[in-house]
Every structure is written in structure tokens, then in C-alpha cells.
Amino acid sequence: SGWQYDTQCSLAGVGIEMGDWQEVWDENTGCYYYWNTQTNEVTWELPQYLATQVQGLQHYQP
């Protein structure tokens, strides 16, 4: 899939279920990364769990 979410945008106002994931701001890069509080996994790309929800939002315009 060529769909890419801009990680400089916060998910805070989007209104999706974050589940075990937390969004963390990284000052050095000026982007958010994502931290799974259960598994301690850290990812710079939007986790599939969140990406599926964001893509499903009608009002979200990339």
C-alpha cells in the first residue's frame, strides 16, 4: 500500500481508539513516534492497528 500518514500530525484530535498505543513527540525529528505500552514496541510508522482506523475515517483528508 502506498498510503502514508504524516507523523508530524497528531492523532489527538482525530478521535480514534489508541488501544495499547501512545503517541510520543520526538523533539529531535519534529515527528511523533508510537509506543506500545503492553509490548514496549516502538515504531516510527503508524501501527496497523491505528492506520486501519485512520483510513476508515470519512472526514480524514490526507
Rank of each mutant, 00 (worst) to 15 (best):
D26V: 05
S1H: 00
Y49N: 09
L11Y: 03
A12Q: 10
Y34Q: 00
D20W: 09
V54E: 01
Y34H: 00
Q38A: 10
S10P: 08
D6N: 12
L50H: 01
A51R: 11
N40K: 08
Q48G: 12
T37E: 06
Y60P: 14
Q53E: 02
Q22C: 04
D26K: 05
A51N: 07
W35Y: 06
T39W: 03
Q8N: 12
E45G: 06
P47C: 00
T29V: 10
L50A: 00
E45R: 09
E41I: 06
E23M: 00
E45T: 11
Y5F: 10
I16R: 01
W3H: 06
N40P: 00
G19E: 04
Q22D: 05
N28T: 09
V42M: 14
V14F: 08
S1E: 13
N36W: 00
S1W: 11
N36F: 01
L11Q: 00
W25E: 04
P62S: 13
N36D: 02
W44T: 11
A51F: 05
C9S: 13
Q61D: 12
N40G: 12
V24W: 04
E45S: 10
W44Y: 14
G19W: 00
S10W: 00
N28H: 07
G13R: 08
Y5A: 04
V14P: 01
A51Y: 10
Y32E: 02
E41R: 09
S10F: 01
E41S: 05
D6C: 05
D26I: 02
H59E: 14
E17D: 15
I16N: 02
E23K: 02
T52M: 07
Q8H: 13
Y33E: 04
P47R: 00
V24F: 09
S1D: 14
W25Q: 10
E23T: 02
W44M: 07
T7Y: 08
Y5H: 11
S1I: 07
Y60T: 14
E27G: 11
G2Q: 13
Q48L: 13
Y60S: 13
E17P: 02
T7F: 04
G13A: 07
S10T: 10
Q4A: 04
E45Q: 13
Q58P: 08
G15H: 03
T7G: 11
W3I: 08
D6F: 03
Y34D: 00
T37R: 10
C9R: 12
Q58V: 07
Q38T: 15
C31E: 04
G15S: 10
Y32H: 09
Q53M: 02
E17V: 07
N36P: 00
C9F: 12
G15W: 01
V14H: 10
C31A: 13
A12P: 04
T37P: 07
T43W: 02
V42R: 14
E41H: 03
L11C: 04
G15N: 08
E23Q: 04
P47V: 02
G19F: 01
Q38N: 07
G19V: 00
V24L: 11
Q61E: 13
Q38I: 11
P62F: 10
G56V: 07
G56C: 07
H59R: 10
T52N: 12
L50E: 03
Y32S: 03
E45A: 08
I16G: 01
E17Q: 12
W25S: 06
T29N: 11
T7P: 06
E23C: 00
Y5V: 03
C9A: 14
C9M: 12
Y32F: 12
C31W: 02
Y34M: 00
W35L: 10
V42T: 14
Y33D: 01
W25V: 05
Q22W: 02
T29Y: 13
T7N: 14
W3L: 12
D6M: 07
G13K: 10
W44I: 03
Y34P: 00
P62Q: 07
V24Y: 09
T7R: 11
Q4P: 02
Q48A: 12
G19H: 02
W21K: 00
Q22H: 02
Y49I: 14
L11R: 01
Q38F: 05
Q61M: 09
M18W: 13
Q53D: 06
C31S: 13
T29H: 12
A12W: 02
M18H: 04
W21I: 00
V54S: 02
E23I: 01
Q58Y: 07
Q4V: 15
P62I: 07
V42K: 14
G19Q: 05
L46I: 07
V42G: 11
Y33A: 01
T29F: 11
T52K: 15
Y5T: 06
D20G: 07
G56R: 13
Q61V: 09
W21G: 01
T39G: 05
P47Q: 00
E27D: 14
T29S: 14
V54W: 06
L46W: 03
V54H: 01
Q8R: 13
T29L: 12
Q38S: 12
Q4H: 14
Q61S: 11
Q55P: 02
E23S: 01
D6G: 09
W35K: 15
D6P: 01
G30W: 07
V14I: 13
L46M: 07
E17A: 08
Q22K: 11
Y32P: 04
E41P: 01
W3P: 09
G30M: 08
H59T: 15
G56A: 12
W3A: 12
C31I: 05
M18T: 10
W44K: 13
A51Q: 03
Q58R: 07
V42F: 09
P47L: 00
Q53L: 04
Q55C: 14
E23W: 00
Y32R: 01
Q55G: 07
V24S: 07
T39V: 00
V42N: 08
P47Y: 00
N40D: 09
N40C: 03
S10A: 07
Q4C: 11
V24A: 04
V14R: 12
T39E: 05
Q55M: 10
C31P: 01
H59C: 10
Q61K: 11
D20I: 02
T43K: 09
L50Q: 01
Q55H: 03
N36I: 00
L46A: 04
G19A: 10
Q38R: 13
D20N: 07
W44L: 07
W35M: 08
W44N: 14
N40F: 05
V24P: 00
W35V: 10
T7W: 03
E41A: 10
G19Y: 00
L50I: 08
N40T: 10
V42L: 08
Q55R: 10
Q4M: 15
T29A: 15
L50M: 03
V54A: 05
T43V: 10
S10C: 05
P62R: 06
Q58T: 09
P47D: 00
Q38P: 03
T37Q: 13
Q53K: 08
D20T: 05
Q55Y: 04
G19M: 03
Y5E: 08
